[in-house]
């Protein structure tokens, strides 16, 4: 059923006004500067020492394409690696590119982990790209990006 019919079924114009304040609020919302404001570009520069990183299929980043709730967005990063003393993933960094502080977590791994997998839930202030940056033991940096659309609304 279409939304319009739905409102007809509700038979209530009041229900429509319920949506309007929310939308106006969204249009009004300003990006606030947080205590730890830090952009993705800056973080990437610091971590890679200016070398930068390249996208790689070795890094898999799982995140929902649409998150019903920006306060809890599940993410899982898996990096292909044997995790041996000579070849392992030193760190997995997670970034939310449009959050005022883009840094979410930096996970420093060791061969004792056996697998280079990290999962957590992050907060996203708006629709944006989430980036996983893997720091390999050979000094290279690999990334994976996933765009997450954050919807607002719902009841309660």
């Amino acid at each position: 059923m279409q939304r319009r019919e739905f409102f007809k079924k509700l038979g209530s114009a009041a229900a429509i006004t319920a949506v309007i304040p929310m939308m106006s609020f969204a249009a009004d919302a300003k990006k606030q500067a947080g205590p730890n404001e830090f952009s993705y570009e800056k973080a990437l520069d610091v971590i890679t020492g200016g070398k930068g990183a390249k996208a790689s299929p070795k890094v898999s980043l799982k995140a929902p394409a649409i998150a019903e709730n920006g306060a809890v967005v599940p993410i899982t990063v898996e990096v292909e690696s044997p995790m041996t003393e000579s070849d392992y993933v030193k760190a997995i960094h997670i970034f939310a590119t449009k959050n005022s502080n883009s840094r979410s977590a930096s996970v420093h791994l060791t061969p004792a982990n056996g697998k280079a997998i990290f999962a957590a839930r992050i907060k996203l202030g708006s629709t944006q790209d989430v980036i996983a940056l893997a720091e390999m033991s050979d000094g290279t940096f690999l990334t994976a990006t996933q765009s997450v659309k954050v919807t607002i609304g719902g009841c309660g």
């Binding site: 059923m1 279409q2 939304r3 019919e5 739905f6 079924k9 509700l10 209530s12 229900a15 319920a18 949506v19 929310m22 019903e68 919807t151 607002i152 609304g153 719902g154 009841c155």
Partner: peptide, 19 residues
């Protein structure tokens, strides 16, 4: 409104406030 207004078989699946 009643609970039924939004949870009747006829309206299940329609989107209200993006949900």
């Amino acid at each position: 409104l009643s609970c039924l207004s939004c949870h009747a078989p006829a309206v299940i699946g329609s989107v209200l406030r993006t949900q």
